[in-house]
Amino acid sequence: MAQEPILTARGLVKRYGRVTALDRADFDLYPGEILAVIGDNGAGKSSMIKAISGAVTPDEGEIRLEGKPIQFRSPMEARQAGIETVYQNLALSPALSIADNMFLGREIRKPGIMGKWFRSLDRAAMEKQARAKLSELGLMTIQNINQAVETLSGGQRQGVAVARAAAFGSKVVIMDEPTAALGVKESRRVLELILDVRRRGLPIVLISHNMPHVFEVADRIHIHRLGRRLCVINPKDYTMSDAVAFMTGAKEPPREAIAA
């Protein structure tokens, strides 16, 4: 890891009333890697992810994207900076079409007077791009780009959400429990999607409780405990039992992992 991290956080603090969700937490994401974030319930991993994706503003601490300090006040600002998040609930509108959903909040307007004065959407262009993105990720079992998202299966919906993030995320893609609600086969498909996205050069932050999935795809594992980063381990050097032991405090992590 001689490279500079693309996304870093130092000393993040977030308090909710008397609860300290983040206690001087650090975070590093390197270019082109899949970083898994694991931690027990209440360890503060979702608060940290929300701070990075703009959903909450930390009380203290600094976040840098490509070395430049950033401060997001909304998920929109994070998106504009190139950080896309696939939320656990997917944030899709069931009655809208696949194409409409992919471009929700950043529609393409027609060129010329129709677009400028009548604010007409360029349906053809959006459908074409949506179709291109979905086939790029091998999701073309979906035949009709205009079908409503509610007529898709769980895995296909997840695919649309991942495709949306991959299509617009220029710097970082964050995925919150992408396989939690899926069956075996659909989980497999989503894991392949995650690897596809990495192959295209985008670094991914993967939040998951599913240890086999984490150990399979992650390059590094960030273990969160009691509001801060406990250690970062390489999944090749440790077993799942070790990771769970560190996560729950049953075992002390090795010194070199803490330094990382």
Binding site: N89, L90, A91, L92, S93, L96, N101, L104, G105
Partner: peptide, 19 residues
């Protein structure tokens, strides 16, 4: 117009999607 539908459909999702 699309946002009208998105807001009625699932306001939470619409918000996260940037509406």
């Amino acid at each position: 117009g699309r946002y009208v539908y998105a807001v009625g459909d699932d306001p939470e999702a619409a918000k996260l999607a940037g509406v």
